[in-house]
Design a protein around this nucleic acid. Structure first.
Length: 733
DNA sequence: ACCAGGCTTCTTTTT
DNA sequence: GAAGCCTGGT
């Protein structure tokens, strides 16, 4: 064991209640440390206790400590919890996401790396916009070379620390991508912009190419902790390992079973090979789970255990009892949502559960809609995490683009975004001329505006440009003088954004509200130094995700994707859409190792549940707006029957089909996806609408063995006998 | 320059 | 079943 630390008043509090493995991790001081922390194993507790321990025992001064987390929320939480142990000094430590940490470092080191301190962060959208411009300039057909594909390839290259000249050039398409990469970099450079990948890439450059910087930062951070290490990509791996190379006080925490960001370059091998990188590393396994019931853990185990190449382990709990996992197949996604809503209301009644105790977890954002519609109709409060994110809304992006242009007059992408929003008579042709002019003369776009007359822009636009320029000058004078929120007000005022976004519709109102909300967010930066406040605000805005603003105490059922839910937990979880093609997702199945990652995603979902887990799938589902039959997800079938509870109101297995067309229809799907027995959806006398026959009234509803047979009298089309399951009917009421 | 309407295509997941 | 792209008309 390590040396006995000087007794500190708060040490008992820090170490109290830790199990032996946790305690080992907390008390490990010098040298590399690898913590395999299974889902719900008290990881955050251990991390914060360890930091507090280091501080409390005077092993390190807080500002010489760096902790890298995956989300800003995790960072905030960590800081708050450490503060609870050791007090205000906790504020001095560096805690943040990879990107935040990188930005902080780069702001201090910008010059030697060849860019301005006031650099702009390009988000995904900006990157796409820039690449579109590149394709255009190179005369490449965006149909043959999709922006997304090229963006991905460039991102992958950057994550591997490769420049254009280190990219493959074995095919024509390789050459195209290389060419785009070069041009894209040129746009970034001229715009004073760095994309997400650049942030990490440049920190690596800094540490690798500048010895004094390397020595400084290595010494600065005597202890480095990395959370979610399984989700680091190569560039991030190099970054932390370079940083820790001097003192070797690197502690990493992670769980290879929860590696779900392979698609953006994360490499599980980083954690699996840690012991190769540091043969003397202390390795701690946290496998005791403090979250879920045994049956939930068992279900999770049986799924994940199908993955090859995982470090063998199994979570356990000493928690007794708990219900089996529920698995239910519903007819379609509407029934699925209705079922979830029914269960929520039932459990609220019978177990006095609060709305906030429930979460609905899905694979793709598109799946949230069905739940939203049903929840709205049934007055079930919910909060949607992700989806159309705040920062991606048009009006928010517009206003941010104005601010970015003011902070950085070279930002061509922002310029192009707002030059004609609102409409001011500066069209595509003019914009192209201006941007080209800026590129040819290597001047900021802003200056191109001033030289518009000489830039060959259409004469008709000159007046408009002149006016626009005057407006921009007015705004620019206020940068560094006004506070961020005042700047927002000024932009809205000068550019007349309110009338622009108001169109009398509720959406227009929502847009104004978003502008107001943006103002509120900017306000938080008002107390900062006027010189930095704007760029601080802009950087944070670019690096903030939706979970970061998630507040668990808020009332409402949580709707969230499997990716964003990692790190959260709920008493009752509905993992929905367990169908082949959805989870696992079709696209993932086409990729190498895609299935493994989908399985981990499923594992993450299952292990979010504390008391109850529902697994649902639909027999038919609207995908791409078209109804399609889905087979039950293999993940669901991987869970032993013994762990699964039949749905309440027990539904019998499907009897043989009757009609010919139906028989054929079923043949394809019946094996893996038996038709759920019929439910009586309609009552006699009920008004319904048929997509072809129009409105009508249900005369008679008979439950047969396979279907609900309906006799309906349509107002126009007369009497019809229809299938309650197959006919395109909707209820009117 | 701008708009409306019809066409396509497409959707993983996110810092 | 939405968002983007193209076209043709003003």
């Amino acid at each position: 064991m390590s040396t006995t630390p000087a007794v500190q008043p708060d040490l008992p509090k820090i170490l109290d209640g830790l199990n032996p493995q946790q305690r080992e991790a907390v008390e490990h001081v010098e040298g590399p440390l690898l913590i395999f922390a299974g889902a719900g194993s008290g990881k955050t507790r251990v991390l914060t206790a360890r930091i507090a321990y280091l501080i409390a025992t005077r092993k390190v001064w807080p500002d010489r400590l760096l902790a890298v987390t995956f989300t800003n929320k995790a960072a905030r939480e960590m800081r708050a919890r450490v503060e609870a142990y050791v007090g205000d000094v906790a504020r001095q430590m560096w805690v943040g996401t990879f990107h935040h940490t990188a930005v902080r470092m780069l702001r201090r080191e910008a010059e030697r790396l060849g860019f301005e301190r006031s650099f702009t962060i390009f988000d995904d959208d900006d990157t796409r916009a820039a690449l579109k411009r590149v394709l255009d300039a190179l005369g490449l057909d965006p149909k043959r070379y999709p922006v997304g594909m090229i963006a991905n390839q460039i991102s992958t290259a950057k994550n591997e620390l490769k420049g254009p000249d280190q990219m493959p050039n074995r095919s024509y398409i390789d050459e195209v991508v290389r060419r785009c990469y070069v041009e894209y970099e040129a746009i970034l450079r001229r715009s004073g912009g760095l994309d997400f990948d650049d942030l990490i890439l440049n920190v690596v450059r800094l540490l690798r190419d500048f010895e004094d910087a390397r020595l400084y930062w290595q010494d600065r951070f005597r202890y480095v902790l990395v959370d979610e290490y399984q989700d680091t990509n190569h560039a991030q791996y190099v970054f932390v390992n370079l940083l820790a190379a001097g003192h070797r006080n690197l502690a990493v925490v992670g769980d290879d079973d929860q590696s779900i960001y392979g698609f953006r370059g994360a490499d599980v091998r980083n954690i699996l090979d840690f012991q190769r990188d540091y043969p003397d590393a202390r390795v701690v396994h946290l496998e005791q789970n403090y979250r879920s019931s045994q049956s939930i853990l068992d279900a999770a185990y049986h799924v994940i255990q199908h993955n090859p190449e995982r470090a063998p382990k199994r979570l356990w709990t000493d928690r007794k009892g708990g219900e089996k996992v529920f698995a239910v197949q519903l007819y379609n996604e509407v029934e699925e949502a209705e079922y979830v809503a029914d269960e929520i209301e039932r459990l609220r009644r019978t177990e006095s559960r609060k709305y906030r105790e429930f979460a609905v977890l899905y694979r793709t954002n598109a799946q949230s809609r069905g739940f939203e519609e049903v929840f709205v109709r049934r007055r079930i409060p919910y909060r949607l995490v992700g989806g159309t994110r705040f920062w991606e809304r048009r009006e928010v992006k517009d206003l941010m683009a104005y601010l970015r242009l003011l902070a950085n007059p070279a930002d061509t992408v922002s310029f192009a975004r707002i030059v004609n929003a609102p409409r001011r008579g500066i069209g595509q042709v003019t914009v192209d001329r201006l941007v080209n002019h800026a590129r040819e003369r290597d001047v900021p776009v802003w200056q191109a505006l001033e030289e518009a007359a000489g830039a060959g822009v259409p004469k008709a636009a000159l007046g408009a440009i002149d006016h626009f320029l005057k407006q921009l000058r007015t705004l620019r004078q206020s940068v560094g003088v006004l506070r961020p929120s005042e700047l927002v007000d000024l932009v809205v005022e000068v550019m007349q954004l309110k009338p622009y976004y108001t169109d009398g519709t509720p959406q227009g109102e929502a847009r104004l509200e978003n502008l107001l909300e943006l103002r509120g967010l900017a306000e938080e930066y008002d107390p900062l130094e006027p010189a930095d406040s704007l760029s601080e605000f802009l950087a944070d805005a670019a690096l903030t995700s939706d979970v970061d603003t998630y507040d668990e105490s808020e009332e409402g059922v949580t709707l969230i994707t499997l990716h964003m839910v990692k790190g959260l937990e709920f008493p009752i979880v509905f993992l929905v859409g367990l169908e082949e093609g959805v989870l696992p997702h079709q696209r993932a199945l086409e990729e190498d190792k895609g299935l493994d990652e989908e399985r981990r995603l499923c594992y993450v979902g299952i292990t979010r549940a504390r008391d109850r887990l529902y697994l649902t799938c639909a027999f038919r589902r609207h995908l791409y707006g078209r109804a399609a039959a889905g087979m039950t997800s293999r993940f669901l079938l991987e869970i032993p029957q013994a762990l699964i509870s039949a749905p309440r109101e027990g539904k019998a297995p499907a009897p043989p089909p009757r009609h010919d067309y139906r028989e054929r229809f079923l043949e394809r799907t019946a094996q893996a996806a038996p038709v759920p027995p019929p439910v009586q959806r309609f009552t006699e006398g009920e008004r319904v609408r048929h997509s072809a026959f129009g409105d009508g009234v249900v005369i008679k509803s008979t439950l047969t063995r396979t279907d609900e047979e309906l006799l309906i009298k349509f107002d126009k089309a007369g009497l019809k006998i229809l299938s309650g399951q197959l006919a395109p009917l909707e209820k009117l009421s």
